[in-house]
Amino acid sequence: MAKGIWVFIEQSKGSIRKVSLELLSQGRKLADEKGEELAAVVLGQGVGALAGEAAKYGADKVFVADDAKLASYSTGAYTSVFAKLIRENEPNFVMIGNTAIGKDLAPRVATRAGVDVAIDCVAVEPDDANYVTLTRPIYAGKAFAKVVSSGARPVMATIRPNTFPVSEPVSRDAEVINAKVDVDPADLRTILKDLISQATGRPELTEANIIVSGGRGMKGPENYVILEELADCLGAAVGASRAAVDSGWREHKFQVGQTGKTVSPTLYIACGISGAIQHLAGMGSSKVIVAINKDPEANIFQVADYGIVGDLFQVVPALTEECKKLKA
């Protein structure tokens, strides 16, 4: 008999990533509604301490798989351990953050568990017949599909970061279950040869609260420094439109849009971005959109909450100055 709601815990430098806290917070609400328990699944090495943290955000139970083989993420070892836990414990619903790791892990685990997985969900509603109804963007957010898993359990979903708020931590105890780590040798065929950190010192685009983004209007790669200055004052990530990436001004990993990253920050500041349909698809779910563009007819103004028609090379530095004043 399947039971419980699970959240896969992603960690970074010894603490739980924000998206996993979001899922725990939402999982708690759902578990209460369903009258079921919420379990966190922690994989890694020396990660025992995370169990207590997971409990604070709502977990009744924490599965901890602590092993050197899990020290850094690998598709094979993580799939092996996670899928075995699912098979043995038969949860009803499994939520994973839609991060680089989540997107890699979830399809593989689901396939091994013999179920499908809904990717990048932005809403989870309890549903008596199908346990939950999931809403996921399709065409990069130009439309949404509601999906259900009619028979098979667990229902699996990856959830977009910033979809749910993180609840206030409360003091609570959770049962810690040390999971046996025996990785199928067939899952250990990949060797991590090198890990290259390209930290910008700024938040990840997909998790950032504020994004400052530049398009064709930036006129060249050298001008992004004015966006970076504003971003650093705001604690924001720096994004780019496809036009800017296609022109070779920014790396593709900074591209926001249908063929780049889909983001939903609290504040998106679009500078010199016309607002092509594929760009809007990638950032249209931002809570507040600011557009700075010299063309008053630019599409971006039709979705912007605040717009400034003007030269971004004057407006952006002025905004940075204002930001510094507010911080001072």
Partner: peptide
């Protein structure tokens, strides 16, 4: 295994103030 039970379009954003 999973079925789509409905489609919707995002709530249209309205241009705010300039």
């Amino acid at each position: 295994k999973m079925q789509i039970v409905g489609y919707s379009l995002p709530a249209g954003r309205k241009g705010g103030r300039v």
